[in-house]
């Protein structure tokens, strides 16, 4: 049995860590076939929001709906449709690229594991280093491998936290092409980044977070950098801190 959904809805989501409010009354919607850019300075709450959407954290208040489903109803079935590329890469350094991918493929009950892993290694351009331990890889190689790990089970919802970290120009463009391909395939993509130049050409809608509050959520179009600065400056008297990029 699988669950499917074409919309992600966060409704008034708040997350509190002891006395610190990491997210405050965040509401947003992401549709299938679009890339939602989640922008904001360090500590704005982007990773917390992605962790909640990925089901790794529970919201302190508010709800997250995946189409008609919630985590409480669908649990593991829902997680089978989510791919997360975190700021940390979720790879075992002692294992080779092939072993890492094979382990996660089995964990996600992927069919025809050998073929899928072989294809993923080709896409990551790591076929010739597939049996080397990951600890010997460069950051860029590990980043490419981590992306393939996140995509191995063909997720419906793809969550990316600073996915361009450590990638060279060629790898960045390859990743952007893959994201466009995923968008065309009707997936929901949430891209958290503070690299406005890279995000500018690819996101369809943006949400700007600062101090856990969503300042702006709407369609792309105008210069992302101008919009980002405007949103942060507009909020500056109320919140303070967090210089615009």
């Amino acid at each position: 049995m699988t669950v499917d959904f074409d919309r992600l809805v966060l409704d008034d989501v708040t997350r509190v860590f002891e006395r610190r409010r990491a997210l405050s009354h965040v509401s947003l919607t992401c549709e299938a076939g679009e890339i939602f850019g989640l922008l904001g300075p360090n500590g704005a709450g982007k990773s917390t929001l992605l962790s909640i959407v990925a089901t790794l954290l529970s919201p302190s208040a508010g709800t997250v709906r995946y189409g008609d489903h919630t985590v409480a109803q669908a649990g593991p079935l829902l997680r089978a449709r989510i791919g997360l590329l975190g700021h940390d890469l979720y790879l075992y350094p002692e294992l080779s690229a092939r072993e890492n991918l094979t382990f996660f493929a089995h964990l996600y009950a992927v069919e025809d594991v050998t073929t899928r892993v072989g294809q993923a290694l080709e896409r990551a351009n790591l076929a010739d280093r597939a049996d080397d331990p990951v600890f010997g890889y460069s950051r860029g190689m590990r980043q490419r491998l981590a992306l393939e790990r996140a995509l191995l089970h063909d997720p419906r919802l793809l969550l990316l936290d600073e996915p361009f970290t450590g990638l060279d120009d060629a790898s960045t463009h390859a990743l952007l092409d893959r994201l466009r391909e995923f968008r065309a395939g009707g997936r929901i993509i949430v891209l958290a980044t503070h690299d406005l130049d890279v995000a500018d050409g690819i996101v369809d809608r943006v949400g700007i977070l600062r101090n856990g509050r969503l300042l702006d959520a709407g369609r792309g179009g105008e210069s992302l950098r101008a919009r980002y600065r405007a949103a942060l400056l507009a909020a500056a008297p109320a919140g303070g801190g967090g210089r615009p990029a």
């Binding site: 790794l56 075992y92 996660f104 996600y108 009950a109």
Partner: peptide, 15 residues
């Protein structure tokens, strides 16, 4: 914890 792989395990669609 070192590579946050515990989060990857928690994210997997298994009990």
């Amino acid at each position: 914890r070192h590579a946050e792989t515990l989060r990857a395990l928690m994210l997997a669609p298994v009990e």
